[in-house]
Simulated assay, not measured.
Amino acid sequence: MGNNNSSLSHKNIKTELDKEIDNKTTDLEEEKELKLKYVIPKSDEAIDITHTFHFFQRYLFQSNFSSPIKERLTQEKCKVLDIGCGPGTWLLELANQYENTLFYGIENNLIYPNEIKPGNLNFIKADMFDGFPFPDNEFDFVRQGLMSFIKPDQLSVIISEMIRVTKPGGYIELLESRNDFKESGPVVRKLNEAHYLHCLNKEVDLKKLPNLDNIIKSNQNTPIVYKDEKFYVLGPNGGNIGMVFQDIYVGFHNSKLTVEYLSSVLGISKEEYKIMISKDLIEELKQTSPEYSLIRFWAKKN
C-alpha cells in the first residue's frame, strides 16, 4: 500500500518508537485511568494501537497534515505544537523530517520518550484542560489529533487555547472521526451503543458532539475553516485499508481496559465479550461494509 511501493502491513505495524517506550500499567493505574477525563492508557497494547493509527491516517490522507505549512517547516525558527501528543508518534516522525523546526508536545500522561528523541523535540507534561503553558502568538502550527472523552465545552476551551498560542498567519488543525453506522451489522451497532453509554456515564454525549468547524469559526481570529475528509470501510470489504482499520478496531476492543468496561455495559462476561470480538465481529465484517470517515479541519489565524 502507499506510494513508492511502500507497504502498510495489517498484521503487525510497529516502529522503532516502540523500543523507546517502556511503560507498565498496574491494575491500580488502570482503575484510575477509567475515571480520568482524558487519558491514553500506558499499556503497551494501547501505545501500539496509537502508533498504528498514526500510520493509518497518514496513508489515508497521504500526508501528516493538511494545512499549507510544509514550506514554513523547512525554515529556521518555525515552531509546532501537538496537543495531547500521546507517545509522540506524529512529533517524532516530523522532528526527524524537518530538522530546522522546533517541535513541542503536551500530554498529561508520561507515555512519550524522555531521552531518546531528536534535539529539536520537547515533551511537556501538562493538562491541556488547565490551559496551555505557552504565551500568546508562539507557534506557526498547532494541531490536535483524534481524542475521545472530551466534553463540548472543554473542546471549545481547547480550541480557543490553540488559537491563542498560534501566531497571526499561523495554522491550527484538528482531526475528527465520523460514522453514521449505515451498512453496519448488529455486532458493530451493539459495540457502538455500549461505547456511547460508557461515554454518557462520563458526561460525554457522543450523539450531541458539535462540529469542530463551527467551534473554530466562532472565534473571530479563524472565521474561515477548510475541510479535508477521507472515507473508508471497516473490514475486508474496504480492501487493504479496511483490513488495517479492522486491526485497529479489533485491537482497541480487545484491549484490557475496553474489555473491562464494555463487557460490564453489555452485561456479559469477559469471556463472552472476547468471543463476540474474535469470532462474531470478524464474521459480520465479511458480510457488511460499515463506512467511516476521518476529517481534518484547518484554519489560518488572522
Rank of each mutant, 00 (worst) to 15 (best):
M1R: 06
G2H: 09
N3M: 13
N3S: 14
N4S: 12
N4I: 11
N4R: 06
N5V: 10
L8R: 03
S9D: 15
H10M: 11
N12H: 07
T15K: 09
E16L: 10
D18K: 11
E20K: 11
E20F: 14
I21N: 09
D22R: 07
D22I: 03
D22C: 07
T26Y: 11
D27P: 03
D27S: 09
E29T: 11
E29D: 13
E30S: 13
P41E: 09
P41L: 06
D44V: 00
T52P: 01
F53S: 14
F53V: 12
F55R: 11
F55S: 10
L60N: 05
S63M: 04
N64P: 01
F65Y: 15
S66H: 10
I69M: 07
E71L: 07
R72G: 00
L73Q: 12
K77V: 04
L92T: 00
E93Q: 14
N100C: 05
E107Q: 07
Y112G: 00
P113G: 02
N114F: 05
G119A: 07
L121D: 03
N122G: 02
A126Y: 04
D130M: 14
F132R: 02
P133A: 05
F134L: 02
E138V: 00
V142P: 11
G145S: 04
L146Y: 09
K151V: 01
D153V: 06
D153Y: 05
Q154N: 12
S156V: 03
I158S: 01
I158K: 05
I159M: 05
S160I: 01
T166H: 11
K167M: 06
P168M: 03
E173V: 09
E173K: 07
E173T: 07
E173S: 02
L174K: 05
E176Y: 06
K182R: 13
K182S: 08
S184A: 15
G185Q: 04
V187I: 15
V187R: 08
V188A: 08
A194N: 07
H198I: 01
C199P: 00
L206A: 01
K208Q: 13
N211F: 15
D213Q: 11
S218E: 13
Q220Y: 14
N221R: 09
T222Q: 10
I224S: 09
Y226N: 15
G238L: 04
N240W: 09
G242P: 06
M243A: 03
V250D: 04
N254Q: 08
T258C: 12
V259D: 03
E260P: 02
Y261E: 00
Y261M: 00
L262F: 13
G267H: 08
E271A: 15
M276C: 09
I282C: 08
E283I: 12
E284Y: 15
K286F: 12
K286E: 15
T288H: 15
T288S: 13
T288N: 15
E291G: 04
F297E: 02
W298E: 03
K300V: 08
K301S: 12
